[in-house]
């Protein structure tokens, strides 16, 4: 992999919001990562669901802001994108284990193919969308906070 990776910032995104994921999207307006936390078990979950996956109960869910920092759990480099991303290859998709113990799948930017490794530290990159929300992407976290 000698080629540089492309970002996918130019892609038009039309993202459907479910009612139960609205707090997540509200958070992104301020570039805050707000995810679901189960009060009964003390565990985080992502992606948003109507209920706690640990107890099955709606009332156990609350929303908490987290740092968005984590390490790469896995990655893939698309050489043949799905239609909306055609022409932007190669670009990378990462699964990141956030420091609160959930995996988050997103694009990664500001990163070369040579840098990209399982276990590398990453931090959020907030990509603005037309509706005022932001799309969470990741970028390498090279320095101290």
């Amino acid at each position: 992999m000698s080629k540089a990776l492309n970002d996918t910032l130019g892609v038009k995104r039309a993202i459907k919001h479910f009612d139960f994921s609205e707090p997540y999207w509200e958070g992104t307006k301020q570039k805050k990562l707000v995810i679901q936390y189960c009060k009964a078990t003390g565990k985080y979950q992502h992606f948003p669901r109507p209920v706690s996956i640990f107890t099955g109960r709606r009332r156990d869910i609350e929303w908490r802001e987290v740092s968005g920092k984590g390490v790469v759990f896995s990655y893939t480099v698309a050489q043949r994108g799905t239609p909306a991303f055609r022409g932007l290859e190669p670009y990378a998709v990462v699964s990141v284990t956030l420091d609160v113990g959930v995996n988050f799948i997103a694009n990664i930017v500001n990163c070369t193919a040579a840098e990209l490794k399982v276990g590398m530290k990453v931090k959020p990159y907030w990509h603005p969308l037309d509706d005022g929300t932001h799309l969470l992407m990741f970028q390498p976290d090279n320095g101290p906070a």
């Binding site: 759990f73 896995s74 990655y75 893939t76 698309a78 998709v93 699964s95 799948i105």
Partner: peptide, 10 residues
């Protein structure tokens, strides 16, 4: 293919 790319790399 991307989903299985993530599985394979892991």
């Amino acid at each position: 293919p991307g989903a299985f790319g993530l599985l394979s790399r892991r």
